[in-house]
Amino acid sequence: MKFNLILIIFLLYSNIGFSQESLLSLIDGKSTEYSRYIFKGTKIVNSESVEMPDAGVLQFMIQHRFGTLNSGFYNFYGLDNSQVRMSFYYGINDRLSVGIGRSSALKAIDSNLKYRLIRQSEGEKSFPLTICLNSSVVFKQYVTSNLPNNFLLSNQFSYSHQILLARKFNRNLSVQLSPTLIHYNLLPIDQLSHDLYSLGYGARYKLSNSVSVNIETFSQFNSENNINPLSIGFDIQTGGHVFQFHLSNSAFMIDRAFIHETYDSWGEGDIYFGFNISRVFTLKDQ
């Protein structure tokens, strides 16, 4: 009898425990977890990351690049020289963003479209990478009086197409590969081909919740005479801004220029200090 009583109590208790567990299992729904926040900014340093503004959000970005650190006290170690790119990016929906920018030193206007094909996810729908397509067009302005009469307007355009492949390995480490094709309508000085291929490598490592260190480089396949860009920077996130401070051997801020028009080398101390500041504005409520 005593044994039976103990059994009943035991069963009752186990049933209570089990019943809440089983109730929980009734509603334990969501089976796919998407990896988000792979990078803090829409750019790793100079090149595009897989991040884009959220739908209905306008991002204003100011990028500054100063002169080389080895340019001496007379140039205040490069701070006397600065060039700027101002740009706007807008998230049309959760997958598509559009951007427009203007670079001072190159006198170039550029515009890009970024489209996210698939998101890294785990669970029922599992996929190892976040993949985006990024295409941009650059219109370089020339002083018209210097141009020959038969100079075509189309000569002023160049294009860049990238596949951005990113993986967030853990909450701190994200890595991105960016196979890139740059097409110049006008064959650039030093080059033998209108189409230049390169592969970009980027990574970020979070030092804390609001600070990360980023690194970015490109290796070029059929480009002549120029040097691969290498950039290292820090992203600092605050309430409304992302500040990115970095050092690079390129002073340019558009794809074609920092990948294929860099002639300065880290080894000789031709290092440019620069920063990006981005601020977001919510234009459209979701």
Binding site: R36, Y37, P53, D54, A55, G56, V57, N209, S210, Q237, G239, G240, V280, T282, Q286
Partner: peptide, 10 residues
């Protein structure tokens, strides 16, 4: 949305 990012990430 930036607040949402900070809420989730940080």
């Amino acid at each position: 949305k930036l607040m949402q990012t900070h809420f989730n990430e940080n």
